[in-house]
């Protein structure tokens, strides 16, 4: 009984999560071919041992070398990293005051405000990104308002630039930042702040010396939750970014669907995964530490 319970989800994930990665890795070592499927070699089991040997002999790291030679790829990785870092910081900047405001709101409002933060998370990601297209475009609502007020004389060009990408990322990932910070701030005992003020801190230094350090775990968790998925983001740069917005998720998609170069797309995926392992492990460790601290 217990074995069955373990085996079913285990085998499922093994077959549909681990094995696919093995295949991606294998294809990343193969060569592009005009065939179906569009790569060689394919393993021919009928040929037995000799076939297996021939199969392994044809695998090589060519595609990875290609990734280092064509500057498109490493520029895309670098630019993804840059965009992810900047937008994580921006999300923190926008999210912290909101989380703080909710945590300090009257008790009876908090549940409602909390739900209002979660609600967008349930609605379609695609639609949320799409909603900014009408706002940011050259004849969009934002420009209309700004022109009408008279702040600007000519419409700003925001859509199809990196700025639009930052706005889109901050907007869609904001709940991921707010929730862990709110969870940390909500546990914070107000009397700690009163004690700090009693001991001579100003409001601001009490915030800086007590509130911020005690919400550190939430800040770290929130930053990882934004940073990790942003690196591989595809929808936002495709819809809001321009042709010069380079992000690795977009490159992978185009390599696969437009160029139909599966081996290179696989190599791009493998490298992306290797890059992501570091923050993922750091994130897991932070979560682990928090769990232990709570026990």
């Amino acid at each position: 009984m217990r074995r069955l319970l373990i085996a079913v989800p285990f085998l499922w994930l093994l077959a549909l999560f681990i094995v696919p990665f093995a295949i991606v890795f294998k294809i990343s070592l193969s060569d592009l071919a005009v065939a179906i499927p569009p790569y060689t070699p394919t393993l021919d089991i009928a040929e037995g041992w000799a076939g297996l040997k021939a199969f392994f002999a044809e695998l090589d790291f060519e595609n990875y070398i290609w990734l280092t030679e064509d500057d498109l790829y490493w520029k895309a990785y670098l630019s993804s990293f840059k965009i992810a870092v900047i937008s994580t910081l921006l999300t923190l900047l926008v999210g912290y005051p909101i989380a703080y405001g909710i945590a300090r709101a009257p008790q009876e409002w908090r549940a409602m405000l909390f739900m209002l933060v979660i609600l967008p998370f349930w609605t379609s990601f695609l639609i949320r990104v799409y909603s900014w297209m009408g706002i940011l475009s050259q004849e969009g609502y934002l420009n209309q308002v700004l022109l009408w007020i008279g702040v600007i004389n000519e419409p700003l060009i925001i859509l199809n630039t990196n700025i639009a990408v930052y706005i889109g990322i901050v907007y869609t990932y904001l709940p991921f930042m707010i929730l862990p910070i709110y969870a940390a701030l909500e546990k914070l005992d107000i009397s700690l702040l009163e004690a700090a003020e009693d001991l001579g801190c100003s409001r601001f230094s009490a915030f800086w010396l007590v509130t911020v350090p005690l919400s550190k775990q939430g800040i770290i968790a929130g930053s990882f939750l934004v940073f990790i998925p942003t690196i591989g983001e595809f929808v936002i740069p495709s819809l809001l970014g321009g042709s010069r917005t380079l992000m690795i998720g977009k490159v992978l998609w185009e390599e696969f669907f437009s160029n139909r170069d599966w081996p290179v797309a696989s190599a791009v995926a493998v490298v992306l995964l290797l890059i992501l392992i570091i923050p993922i492990v750091l994130f897991q460790r932070n979560e682990q530490k928090q769990r232990e601290a709570n026990q």
Binding site: P20, V24, I228, I231, G232, G249
Partner: peptide, 20 residues
């Protein structure tokens, strides 16, 4: 295996499943 798919970029998950 339980936690990884949640943080995996969708493009990788999608690609790997397709290849499978």
């Amino acid at each position: 295996m339980i936690y990884a798919p949640m943080v995996m970029p969708e493009v990788i998950t999608g690609l790997s499943l397709l290849l499978l």
